[in-house]
Design a binder for these strands. Structure first.
Length: 130
DNA sequence: TGTGTGACAAAGC
DNA sequence: AGCTTTGCCACAC
């Protein structure tokens, strides 16, 4: 029984070669429900890294399996959809398909009510140090 | 080895 | 509202 961050069923087989921190991030993002979104910062925190939002964005950019890791559900903390490897338009389209509505300025409608941060995942003890 | 860059964020002004 | 600085991880020069 593999750990979540090492389980190809969770993070995708193509992502097994990725760095440990990235794999942990993928396992977390995997748990974001359809029709909901989370933020780069929240995922970083769930991974035990406050301020690691940038690293999370980098990990999303290199995601090799969008089926296992729904990276389009990770957005900016201000409610803007943020970037996407194949373009923001594609990201918006995917979110629309899950029932979310995006305003013209890129803001997610009812951002607060679709925001998901309730990760049961872990963290190392660094989190107790904040 | 050092520096810069990137799908970000929070704090300071 | 906008800009700057600092923090984070990994990688390309």
């Amino acid at each position: 029984m593999a750990e979540p961050q090492n389980d190809p069923k969770i993070i995708g087989e193509a992502n097994l070669n990725q760095p440990p921190f990235y794999r942990r991030i993928y396992a977390i993002v995997h748990d974001i429900p359809k029709g909901r979104v989370s933020t780069y910062g929240a995922v970083a925190l769930a991974a035990g890294k406050r301020g690691g939002a940038r690293a999370v964005g980098n990990a999303m950019n290199r995601n090799q399996d969008t089926a296992c890791v729904p990276c389009h559900r990770v957005v900016k903390s201000d409610g803007n959809v943020g970037g996407y490897y194949s373009g923001t338009a594609e990201k918006i389209k995917r979110l629309n398909d899950e029932g979310l509505k995006i305003k013209k300025n890129g803001q997610i409608t009812d951002f607060d009510s679709v925001l998901f941060t309730d990760f049961n995942v872990i963290s190392e003890r660094e989190i107790s140090d904040l």
